[in-house]
Write a protein that binds this DNA or RNA. Structure first.
Lengths: 344, 344
DNA sequence: TCGACCGCGGACAACGTTGTCATGGTGGCG
DNA sequence: CGCCACCATGACAACGTTGTCCGCGGTCGA
C-alpha cells in the first residue's frame, strides 16, 4: 500500500489558503487578496501565489467564505413533485435560467407528492441556508415554514396554494381553462360533455372541476353526475371511466381530460375505437400534434410560471415587504382537431 | 418605517446557537448537545432549550457544521445538458433517488451543451465542496477536473466519455444499437436503409454511425453515401434530408433516425405522406406507441444509467481506488410497427 | 530634515458550529 | 470523613475564509 501511495500520490485533504501561503512564503491574507483580486499585492508576489495555487490544485472553500462574510450562498431551493415529469423539469429549467442570470444556483428535490418528503426537503434546504425556497406543495400544511419566512427566507408556492400560510403564489387559471373548453365544445354542437378529473382533494383538480361546472351552467347545459368521473386514473381506470361516460343510453359526445396523464390514457383507450368523442385535454404535451387526430389542449406556459416565481422571489430578496401576491397565469385553448370534431 | 418594523417584527438575522443559549441561560455547547441528541443534558434543561429553539425559529447552520467537522456536505453535483429534456430529467431523478438512499442531496445545472458553461458549473460545484461530480460532457476538454480528481473529488462521466482525462464513465451501446436496427430492417426485406444522424463531432452520433456502417457491412449491404445525412437537424432540415434519401431513382425503403429529436422531426415530415418508409428511431420517447404506425425504437434505460453512475461514485467515495471503469449499458430494439413495415 | 503618504504585507478576530478538556457538584462506599 | 466516580455543564480552540487594523520601508513635497 505504501507502494500505491508512492506511485499515485492521492492527497486526501484539499489544499487550503494556509497551504498555499506556506508554499509561497507569504501570509494567508495575501493569498486571500490574490484569490479575490484585491489590490495591494505586488505583481511578482501575486504570480508566485498563483503558481502555488495551480500546483496544489487549490480551490477556495465557498462555504467558509459565506460563513465569514455572513453573506448568502446564492442558492435557491426548489421542491418539486418529481423532476422526471415534464412539468417539473421545464419548471426547473426556467428557474435555473432565472437564477443563472443573477449568478445563483439551484438545489432541487422531488417530494413524490408525499408531504413528509416535501417537508424534509424544505427544512434541509433551509438548514443549508438557501436564500429562497420555491415549493410545489405536496401537502396542505405549511406552518413549518412560518419560522423560515419570518426569519427572512422568502418562499414562493407554485401550481398550488400553500396550506396554512399566506405567501406568494403562482398559479394557472385552472377554472377559466376548463370553462373555456366547455364553451368551445358547446360551440361545436356538443351538449353532452364529460369531465374526467384527478382526485378532488388535489387543488388543481378541484379548480378544474369548478370551471367545468361553471362552464356548463353558463352554456345552459344541465348538470349530470353521470358525466363526471373524479379520482385516480391509471390506464385501466381511465378506460373504464371513458366506457362509462361514452356508453349508456345518453352517451357523451365530448370529453375533457383533467390533465395530461389522463389525456394520454384516454388516447390509449381510444386507440382502436371506431367512433371517437371530441377531446380536449388540460395541459399541453409533446407530440400532441402527431397523434390522429391531433389533440386540442388547454395549454399554459410552464416556463413562464418558473420565471414569475423567481421574479416574486427576487423582489422579496430585494426588500419588497408588501403583502403576499398571487399571480394567475392564463390558460389558452389550442385547437388541433380532436376538440373540433362535430357532434356525431 | 419604525412603525413598520414595530407592527411586523421581521428579524433579519437568523437565530444562532448563541441566541438560543442566551435565551435559555445555558452555554452554546449545551444547545449544541441538545440539537445533536448528545447525552449528558438534564431533561429539564433540554426541554428549556428545545422551547427556546422553537421560539426563535432556530435552525442549525449546516455549512458551519460541515466546516467545523471537516465532514462533507453530502451533496453531489450533476452537470446536465438541459434539465428540461426527458433524458436529463429522468437521469436527474434516478441520481436523486440514489442520493436520497444515502441521505444525500443533488445540485444540478444545465450546460446547454456549451463547454464553458459545463466548466463553470463543475468548478462552482467543486468550490461548494460537493463530494462527487456527475458530468454529461458538453466539451471535449476535462483537464480542468484533474486537480479535483487528484484531491479526492470523484467524477463520473455520463453518456459520453471525458476528453483528456481517464475516469469512470457510463455509456450505452450506441454502435450495437444501430447495428441491431440494420439487422432488423434487413430481416424485414429492406436493402436500401438510410441513416439520419446528428453532427459526427458528437460522440454518440459518431458511434451510432459506426454501428450503422458495421451493420450494413455485416448484412452484406453495399455502402452508399447518398443514404447517410449527418448534421444538425431542425424540422425543415430533417424534412429535406428525408426527401433526399427517399427520393431519387433508388430511394431508401427504411430510415434509421439517430436520436429522438430526429425521430420526431421525421414523423412530422412523414405526417401527410402517402408511402411511408420503415422507421427505427434511436432513443425511446413517450407516446411512441400512440402515433400511427407505432414507432419501433432502440431503447435504453436512462434511469439505470443514473443508478450505475451513482454506484461508481459511491464506490469511489467508499475508498475504491482501482483503475477507472467503463460501464456500457445495453440497447434493445422495441418493435412497435414502424420498423416492421415490409419493403414496399 | 521632517512629516505625510503610499505600497505591500501580516496579525488577529470573527462567522456558527463541534470536539476536547476542565470544573463543580453529588452520591456511594470504605 | 476522605476518596473516587459520575453527571451536568461550560470554556476554549479550531474548521477556512475575510474584514479591520497595524507596521514597515520608501518617496515626495515643503
Amino acid at each position: 500500500m505504501t507502494t500505491l501511495s508512492a506511485v499515485e500520490p492521492r492527497r486526501v485533504r484539499r489544499a487550503t489558503m494556509g497551504d498555499v501561503a506556506r508554499l509561497a512564503g507569504v501570509s494567508i491574507k495575501t493569498v486571500s487578496r490574490v484569490v479575490n483580486d484585491e489590490p495591494g499585492v505586488h505583481p511578482a508576489t501575486a504570480a508566485r501565489v498563483v503558481a502555488c495555487i495551480e500546483q496544489l490544485g487549490f480551490r477556495r472553500h465557498l462555504g467558509a467564505r459565506d460563513l465569514r462574510r455572513g453573506s448568502s450562498s446564492k442558492t435557491i431551493g426548489l421542491v418539486l413533485e418529481d423532476v422526471a415529469n415534464p412539468f417539473s423539469s421545464v419548471l426547473t429549467r426556467a428557474v435555473e435560467e432565472a437564477a443563472r442570470a443573477r449568478g445563483w444556483h439551484v438545489l432541487t428535490g422531488s417530494s413524490d407528492a408525499q408531504p413528509s418528503r416535501e417537508r424534509e426537503l424544505a427544512v434541509e434546504f433551509c438548514a443549508r441556508r438557501v436564500d429562497g425556497l420555491l415549493v410545489v406543495p405536496a401537502g396542505g400544511q405549511h406552518g413549518y415554514l412560518a419560522a423560515e419566512m419570518r426569519t427572512g427566507t422568502p418562499v414562493v408556492f407554485l401550481d398550488r396554494p400553500a396550506g396554512d400560510v399566506v405567501a406568494d403564489t403562482v398559479l394557472v387559471d385552472n377554472a377559466g381553462g376548463t370553462a373555456a373548453a366547455v364553451r368551445h365544445l358547446h360551440a361545436h354542437g356538443h351538449r353532452r360533455i364529460a369531465f374526467l378529473g384527478d382526485a378532488p382533494q388535489i387543488f388543481t383538480a378541484a379548480e378544474r372541476l369548478r370551471g367545468f361546472r361553471e362552464g356548463c351552467a353558463r352554456a345552459g347545459l344541465g348538470w349530470d353526475d353521470e358525466l363526471v368521473v373524479m379520482g385516480p386514473h391509471d390506464a385501466p381506470g381511465a378506460a373504464r371511466a371513458l366506457a362509462r361516460v361514452c356508453g349508456g343510453e345518453r352517451p357523451a359526445t365530448a370529453v375533457i381530460a383533467g390533465n395530461n396523464r389522463i389525456t394520454v390514457h384516454v388516447l390509449r383507450a381510444l386507440a382502436g375505437a371506431a367512433a371517437r368523442p371530441a377531446l380536449v385535454g388540460f395541459d399541453d404535451f409533446e407530440l400532441a400534434d402527431l397523434v390522429d387526430p391531433p389533440v386540442t389542449v388547454l395549454a399554459h406556459d410552464t416556463a413562464a410560471m418558473g420565471r414569475a416565481a423567481m421574479e416574486l422571489l427576487f423582489a422579496r430578496l430585494d426588500g419588497d415587504s408588501g403583502p403576499p401576491r398571487r399571480v394567475v397565469l392564463p390558460v389558452r385553448l389550442v385547437p388541433r382537431g380532436s376538440g373540433e370534431l362535430p357532434c356525431r
